[in-house]
Design a protein around this nucleic acid. Structure first.
Lengths: 151, 151
DNA sequence: CTACAATAGTTGTATATACAAATAATGTAG
DNA sequence: CTACATTATTTGTATATACAACTATTGTAG
C-alpha cells in the first residue's frame, strides 16, 4: 500500500539514513583519530605531525615546498608553517630557503625523521588489526562509497 | 570522480585497502565538517556548539546536567563547560546550579536557542543535497560497514 | 622601469581538542 | 564524626583548526 503518508514517511527515512551516515562518518573518524593519537603519543608526536612526516617521506630525498605539503594534507586548512616548526624543533625535518625563488621554503625529512617513521610502522600491527573488523571487500566498498559521496 | 589518492596527491599507493579506508574516513569527515561549519557560521555558532544545542533540544524542556551533555557529544573529550559558556554568552542556553546536588549544573536551551535551531533546520536543503551523491542503499551500506568497523 | 597583481609564507586571534590537575560537594567505611 | 573515596565540574597548558591580515618576493601590463 503506497499511500502518500507512507511515501513521505519513507522520504523522511531517506533523509534520516543520509544524516545518520554523515554523523557516522564523523563519529568513526574521531574514533580512528583517537586510536591513532595513542599510537603516536609514545613517540612525542601528534597524528597531524605524523601526516606531515609521511608526506615528506613520500618525496624523499627531494624536498617539498610548504605549499606542496599543505595541499597533500588530510586537513588542508591546518597550518603547515607551525606544524613544520614543531617538527624542526624535534629534529625530524629541515627547512631551507629556496635559492631560486626566495619566497619559498623547502622542507625535507631528516634521517632521524625517517627512523621515527620506521619505528612507528613496525608497531602498526595492532592498528591494522583494529581495522580488520571488516573484510577487504567491505573496505573496498567503503572506499568506493566515500569517494562517490564527495563527487 | 576524485579518489582519495587524488585528493591528497599520494604518489605511492596505500599499503592496504584498510589503511586507505581509514584515511578516506578521516578525509571525508573533515570535508563534511567544513561544509557544516559554513552552514553554521552565518549564525555565529560552530558545529560543536550546534551539536550541544541539538542535544539540549532533545531533552527540552527538561534540563540536562553538564555530564549528560558530554556523554551525548560526538567528540566526548570536548570540553562541555567551555562550549556551554560560549552558548550562554550568546543567550542560547541557561545554566542553573542544581539545588538538590550542588555539585551539578543544569543546562537548558532557551527560546532563542530553539529559534536558532529551527532557522538552521529550515536551511538544511542544500546540506541534504550534498549527501545525496550516494543512493539510500549506499548510505545504509555505509552505516552498516562503519558500525561493523567499530565493532 | 613602475605600478599592480599574484604567489609563498608568516603571524595574530578566536575556537576547539586532549589531558591532567584542582576544586568542591557528596557518599561511606570505620 | 572523621578520613577518604567518589562524583561533577572547572581550570590550566599544549596542540591544532579556521580564517583573515600581513610581509616579502616575483611576474607582468603598460
Amino acid at each position: 500500500m503506497a499511500s502518500i503518508e507512507e511515501e513521505i514517511k519513507q522520504e523522511k527515512k531517506f533523509g534520516t539514513e543520509y544524516e545518520k551516515a554523515a554523523v557516522n562518518i564523523m563519529f568513526t573518524s574521531s574514533w580512528l583519530y583517537n586510536i591513532n593519537a595513542g599510537r603516536m603519543k609514545k613517540h612525542g608526536i601528534t597524528p597531524e605531525q605524523y601526516n606531515v612526516l609521511r608526506i615528506l617521506r613520500g618525496s624523499y630525498p627531494k624536498p617539498l615546498m610548504l605549499g606542496s605539503v599543505t595541499c597533500r594534507m588530510v586537513d588542508k586548512s591546518s597550518n603547515a608553517t607551525r606544524l613544520v616548526e614543531k617538527l624542526r624543533q624535534k629534529g625530524y625535518v629541515e627547512r631551507e630557503l629556496c635559492e631560486t625563488n626566495r619566497r619559498q621554503v623547502d622542507i625535507m625529512i631528516t634521517e632521524k625523521g625517517l627512523a621515527l617513521l620506521t619505528k612507528i610502522d613496525n608497531e602498526a600491527e595492532e592498528w591494522i588489526n583494529t581495522l580488520k573488523g571488516i573484510t577487504k571487500a567491505e573496505a573496498q566498498e567503503l572506499n568506493r562509497i566515500l569517494d562517490k559521496l564527495r563527487n
